[in-house]
C-alpha cells in the first residue's frame, strides 16, 4: 500500500534542547495513526513540521509526494488540518465560515458541513467565539469533512471535549475515514477512547520514541503483571525485560513485552521473593501510563 506520509530522520532542537532525533514513520493510505505522548513531548512540533510551519534541524517529511517545507496549494488542499483547541476564525458565524472556505476548495461538500451543523444546537448567525468547546470542535470537523481532503491532520482534538463530544467526534471520524478511505494523523495526550479510533500508534516520551506499532499488536504484546514482594526496597533495572514499573507499598506493577513465564523466571533469577503474581488486563490508556510513567 502506498504511503501518504513519509517522515525520514526527523531531528529537531529548540535552542539546545533536543525534541527528538532520527524520527522515522510512515502513514499508509487509509490508515489512522495516533501520535501519543504527554504534554511537551513534541507532538505539536511534529504537526508543525508536517504542515510546513517549522523547518526541522535535519530530516524531511514527504506528504503526498511533496516535501513539507514547500507544499503546493494543491497538496495543501488535500490536507485537512485541525488546530489544537479547534482554533478557527472565531469572529465568523457558521454561515460565514462555510462561505469563506468554500471559495478555496473546488470539491467543497457543503452538505457534509451543514449535516453536522444541523446536529448542533446553534443558530447560523451565532459567532463561533460564543460557542462551547464541543460545538467548536464540530464546526472544525464539519469544515474538514466538507473540504474532503485525502489526509486529515488533527492536533490534539480531544482536548477540552467532554466525554460525549469526544465519543461523537471519534466515532464520526472513524466511520468517515474508513468509509471514504481517508488517511488520518492525529496526536493526543488523552488516551481514553483512542483505541476506538487509531490503527497504529507512536508513543513519545521526552526526546525518544517508546513505541511505534499497530495498536492491536501493542495491546496484545504489552502486558502488566502485579505481585507483592516481601522486601519493599526492591528495585528493578529498566531497559531489559522490564519496560517500566510502579511500586505501591509492597505491590509491584511491572510493565513488559514478555510473557508471564519469562517474567517469573526473571524474578526468580534475581532471587526476589514474591507472591500473588497475576496478569492485569489493560486499556490503551492503562498501557500508555504504564509505559510512560505517571510523572
Amino acid at each position: 500500500m502506498e504511503n501518504i506520509v513519509e517522515c525520514r530522520n526527523l531531528t529537531h532542537y529548540y535552542g539546545n534542547k533536543m525534541v527528538y532525533e532520527d524520527l522515522n514513520f510512515n502513514i499508509k493510505k487509509g490508515s489512522i495513526l495516533g501520535l501519543l505522548g504527554k504534554n511537551g513531548t513534541g507532538k505539536t512540533t511534529t504537526i508543525n513540521i508536517l504542515n510546513g510551519y517549522l523547518t526541522p534541524r535535519s530530516g524531511e517529511c514527504i506528504i503526498l509526494g511533496e516535501n513539507s517545507k514547500n507544499l503546493s496549494p494543491y497538496v495543501k488542499s488535500q490536507i485537512g488540518y485541525l488546530i489544537e483547541n479547534h482554533v478557527q476564525y472565531a469572529f465568523m458565524n457558521i454561515y460565514q465560515i462555510e462561505k469563506f472556505y468554500s471559495g478555496f476548495y473546488p470539491n467543497w461538500k457543503r452538505e457534509a458541513y451543514y449535516d453536522l451543523m444541523a446536529k448542533l444546537k446553534v443558530t447560523p448567525k451565532q459567532k463561533i467565539s460564543t460557542m462551547s468547546c464541543g460545538q467548536r470542535s464540530q464546526v472544525a470537523l464539519g469544515l474538514i469533512l466538507a473540504q474532503d481532503p485525502e489526509l486529515l491532520v488533527l492536533d490534539d482534538f480531544t482536548m477540552g471535549l467532554d466525554p460525549g463530544y469526544r465519543r461523537l467526534f471519534i466515532d464520526y471520524l472513524r466511520n468517515y475515514a474508513k468509509a471514504e478511505g481517508k488517511t488520518v494523523f492525529t496526536t493526543s495526550h488523552i488516551i481514553q477512547d483512542m483505541e476506538r479510533l487509531i490503527d497504529e500508534c507512536i508513543v513519545f516520551d521526552y526526546n525518544k520514541v517508546l513505541v511505534y506499532m499497530p495498536v492491536k499488536e501493542f495491546m496484545s504484546t504489552f502486558k502488566q503483571f502485579n505481585f507483592e514482594v516481601t522486601n519493599p526496597d526492591v528495585e528493578f533495572e529498566k531497559g531489559g525485560l522490564v519496560e517500566n514499573y510502579e511500586k505501591i507499598d509492597s505491590t509491584i506493577e511491572l510493565y513488559t513485552y514478555s510473557r508471564a513465564n519469562e517474567v517469573e523466571s526473571y524474578l526468580a533469577s534475581l532471587g526476589i521473593a514474591y507472591s500473588n503474581f497475576r496478569e492485569v488486563p489493560m486499556t490503551l490508556e492503562d498501557a500508555f501510563i504504564g509505559l510512560t510513567g505517571k510523572y
Partner: peptide, 18 residues
C-alpha cells in the same frame, strides 16, 4: 489581531494558496 490570536495565522497559511 484576530490572526495572531490563538495563532490563527496557521489557518490562513494552510489555505491552498501560496
Amino acid at each position: 489581531i484576530p490572526e495572531v490570536k490563538q495563532r490563527r495565522i496557521k489557518l490562513t497559511l494552510h489555505l491552498p494558496l501560496n
